[in-house]
């Protein structure tokens, strides 16, 4: 309990003195994870929409695969991306290992299945309601998919937030492909891991408290917007 109190004090102290290093780490965390979630949404949402409306052989298998990949271990993704981006790997010449770009790629891969699978579920439920009406109006699959994306937009915000939460909270993948380089690829989670290994548990926990508060604040904001929008648009 004493340690928890210490951690809270540490967190407050860090915020209180507007620690510039902390600020840098927080900004990088947000940049990396928000970019990753954008990339993942641009790829994952259309996949979810397509899976919701398309009937093809093997659809069930693809859905099961996506659901299973939601539990993809970050370390495995990290290793995979590391081997791809390593100088000795196929994408080595790009020279982006140990950069924020590499971390974005790893996080995006990690959350595409989450966004794909959860948005598929959301849109499939909506499709049950919409299907006859849209087919009656002569909507082709592609139109139907984009209509569903637009009409379920408020629920999809929650889906995207789930992806963001996973991205910003994960450490296994980014520490491998980012290298936790001070000032370059050190984000909240890798900083927490580092402070933990240095045995500075209160500081590590303090950073953790800041991370969780950020995520909560972001979710609260999104939830307020969603509520307001639902009240407005039904």
């Amino acid at each position: 309990m004493e340690e928890l109190r210490q951690a809270c004090l540490q967190a407050l102290a860090l915020i209180g003195r507007l620690d510039s290093q902390l600020f840098e780490i927080v900004v990088l965390s947000l940049q990396v994870s928000l970019t990753a979630v954008t990339v993942a949404a641009v790829i994952g949402l259309p996949i979810g929409a397509a899976l919701a409306v398309e009937c093809f052989r093997g659809r069930q298998a693809v859905i099961v695969l996506f659901n299973a990949l939601m539990g993809l271990p970050p370390v495995v993704v990290g290793l995979l991306v590391y081997l791809l981006l390593s100088r000795a790997g196929p994408l080595g010449p790009l020279g982006i290992l140990f950069t924020p770009t590499a971390m974005i790629i790893a996080q995006a891969i990690l959350i595409i299945p989450i966004i794909g699978a959860l948005s598929r579920q959301t849109m499939e439920d909506a499709w049950r309601e919409y299907e006859e009406q849209l087919r009656s109006l002569g909507a082709k699959r592609l139109t139907a998919a984009s209509t569903l994306l637009w009409d379920t937009r408020f629920s999809l915000v929650t889906v995207v937030l789930a992806g963001f939460g996973r991205a910003v909270a994960e450490v296994g993948a980014v520490i491998i492909v980012g290298g936790n380089i001070d000032g370059v690829t050190r984000v909240m989670t890798t900083a927490i891991a580092l402070e933990t290994s240095k045995g500075d548990l209160p500081l590590a926990l303090g950073l953790g408290i800041i991370l969780v508060s950020l995520v909560i604040a972001l979710n609260a904001a999104a939830s307020l917007i969603r509520e307001a929008a639902l009240r407005r648009y039904g």
């Binding site: 947000l30 940049q31 990396v32 928000l34 970019t35 954008t38 020279g95 982006i96 140990f98 950069t99 924020p100 770009t101 974005i104 370059v184 690829t185």
Partner: peptide
């Protein structure tokens, strides 16, 4: 955010 990150960090 993406725009703020130059390629290669």
């Amino acid at each position: 955010c993406a725009a703020l990150i130059p390629p290669g960090g």
